[in-house]
Structure formats: structure tokens, C-alpha cells
Design a protein around this nucleic acid. Structure first.
Lengths: 79, 79
DNA sequence: TGCTTATTTTACCGATCGGGAAAAAATTAG
DNA sequence: CTAATTTTTTCCCGATCGGTAAAATAAGCA
């Protein structure tokens, strides 16, 4: 199961941070590089990946986009 | 296709707002009610549903949770 | 193993903005 | 036209985030 890059449900900032970091690593990118191509600070990116709960949506979306990720919303029970 | 409550990809705050409002309406809830059970202000909720890009993640997640929604991240191409 | 280098985390400062409460204004429903 | 719902102000404290530098970790290599 779970063949593609689908993640388990994201219910917390920590979950999200995990997903992002995992993807970034998979792409062999450093924080500095990623920050550069997303127009966010390195510090922000680090905090984001570490599950800071109060990050702003726009910044978050920018990072996801740059990493080729996209969000989806659905019932908690899943697929 | 798309049998469950799966949404198209969420790439902007506007997309997200749309999903949230749709779901809230489907549940027959008012902003005041929803704000109450999510511990966020009515103003925030209104702005969120109208696509304010700078909302904070924690508040956002709280609302999604209260509405029985969950986020998922995957490749832009989808499933 | 120990050392060097690459990467990440954290501390500061300052400008900017988020969002709660409450009420008025505006839009929608009945 | 009246009641209900949503949007928008106002006041305002507290926190975010960028840039930068230093500290702490992780990686890489002989």
C-alpha cells in the first residue's frame, strides 16, 4: 500500500514539517539552497521542518510548491 | 472519479478557503458556531475562508480538524 | 578514531502583521 | 421588510520572519 508519495494525514505542524524535510532530503537539497529558491529565510525553513505551529500559510505553500508538493483535503478517514 | 470528499490540489490560500467554507456549509454551521468550537475568532474564520494568505498554520489546522477534515501532501501530479 | 567541513539550529534586532473582542456595516436568507 | 449571517473596523499586544553571526550537529575522509 501507499505506492506513491502519499503521506499519512497531516494534522499537526510536526507532521507537515516531517513531510517537507523528508522530501527536501530526497531531493538532495540543503536548507540554504531551498530557502534560496523559495524566497524564505533559512531560519524559517528550519523552524518549519521542526514543526513550528505558527508559521504562515503563504510561506508554507511556497515551500511546498518549490518541492513539487501539493496539499489535498479530505475526510479524516482517508482515501 | 473522485468518489469521496477528495479535493483538487490546494496550492493557494484561496483554494483552502474554498474547501473550508464548502465543508462548513455542508455541515450547516455558521461562522459563530464554528469559531466557537475551534477557539478562533469569527473574524479570523471569515478571513480564512476568503483566502487570506497569511493565516497561521495552527489556527488553520484547528479549524480543519473541527470540520472533520485532514490534509495530505503528495506530488503535484496527484494520486 | 580524530579532525575538517558541510549543514542545521539558535540567538539578536527591528519592522511588520496576525488575530481576539466587540460593534457597526453590508450582504443574504426567509 | 425583518431576521440571520457574514464582512469589516478599531484597539493593541504579542509573535513572526528576514538577515547575520555564532554555536551546535551531522557528515565525510584519511
Amino acid at each position: 500500500m501507499d505506492p506513491s508519495t502519499t503521506t499519512g494525514g497531516i494534522r499537526s505542524a510536526a507532521d507537515l514539517g516531517r513531510v517537507i524535510r523528508e522530501r527536501r532530503k530526497r531531493d538532495g537539497l540543503t536548507l540554504v539552497e531551498t530557502a534560496g529558491l523559495t524566497n524564505v529565510g533559512v531560519r524559517f525553513l528550519s523552524e518549519l521542518e521542526n514543526g513550528k505551529p505558527t508559521v504562515r500559510l503563504d510561506k508554507l505553500l511556497r515551500v511546498l510548491g518549490a518541492l513539487g508538493l501539493e496539499l489535498r483535503a479530505g475526510d479524516r478517514d482517508g482515501r
